[in-house]
Design a protein around this nucleic acid. Structure first.
Lengths: 148, 148
DNA sequence: CTAGGAATTCCCAGTTTTTCCCACTTCCGC
DNA sequence: GCGGAAGTGGGAAAAACTGGGAATTCCTAG
């Protein structure tokens, strides 16, 4: 289970140093590559390769003739890249994924259960502000009686 | 059941000394780690690790494709960190959680039943003032007939 | 077909950060 | 006043991050 947030700087070559604490759980000790893809909220998703497979299978099973599914398929499958970490545990983010997500240097690396999200730091704070600003957070239907 | 408020100072490294009183009940005598995460009110939540599990499970069960739930999952799961207390009973608060909550040195440590809340002292007093200012505290719906 | 150039990948080493542990001081109880 | 426990601060060892550099491969032009 992935959780926890880390602020990370990309180097000049666009490489992201995965925090050591999560590195082994992501790559299962270096034996498994990772998959990086795009999310509609303009962040990137990072899966251990085996965990990505069933997700891709589900997306590919969307009905091809329903136009509403096609953008999702193009985004999730079209941007997916299998990447191996280098000797120092860094992953190289392609120019295409960097352009899509607005990532240039400062990013937030956020655990979300079965995957990690990678955000441009500024965009991350903007979407946080939407929840915490205004005094009263917005509660979606079904969450009114949620207890911490 | 956790209750009671303590004013605590963080040291220069961002370490918080958990009061001796509550230390054993939090860690069950040192056998169990704690989980620290974020709350929309810009305070931190501190759980004994076993008590956090069901909360995380409920959050993880939110529908992934409903955009209204995603910010909550990013906040509660994304900021969650499992931390072990050091030999002196202190817990290290990560720079990310300190930045989110505005905590730098003086904090208020408040029992809240199944968890503790950790507030920046200034922010704690501001939210107290919001309740007590103006002479008449605001009553949320359903609390009109509450008897102390 | 060959040679030059550019981009990419892999690897090494310095520097910073983190983590763990020890010692001192202060506070409380006896 | 004395003993003990708890809080506080600092320091040293280890690990990790950062940046650069060299070699290889791919592409392009002659």
């Amino acid at each position: 289970m992935f959780q926890g947030a880390s602020q990370i700087n990309l180097d000049a070559k666009g490489r992201l140093a995965v925090p050591t604490r999560v590195r082994d759980s992501l790559t299962q000790g270096g034996t498994v590559p990772v998959v990086l893809t795009a999310h509609p909220d303009k962040c990137l998703l990072l899966y251990p390769s085996p965990a990505w497979e069933p997700v891709r299978a589900k997306v590919m099973a969307f009905p091809s003739l329903d136009p509403a599914f096609n953008p999702w398929k193009r985004l999730l499958v079209g941007f997916a890249e299998e990447i191996a970490l280098d000797g120092a545990g860094r992953l190289l983010i392609s120019p295409e994924l960097r352009a899509f997500s607005g990532i240039d240097k400062r990013v937030m690396f956020v655990g979300q259960g079965s995957y990690y999200e990678i955000w441009d730091l500024e965009r991350w704070q903007q979407q946080l502000d939407r929840l915490t600003a205004g005094g009263s957070p917005v509660l979606p239907p079904g969450m009114e009686n949620f207890s911490l």
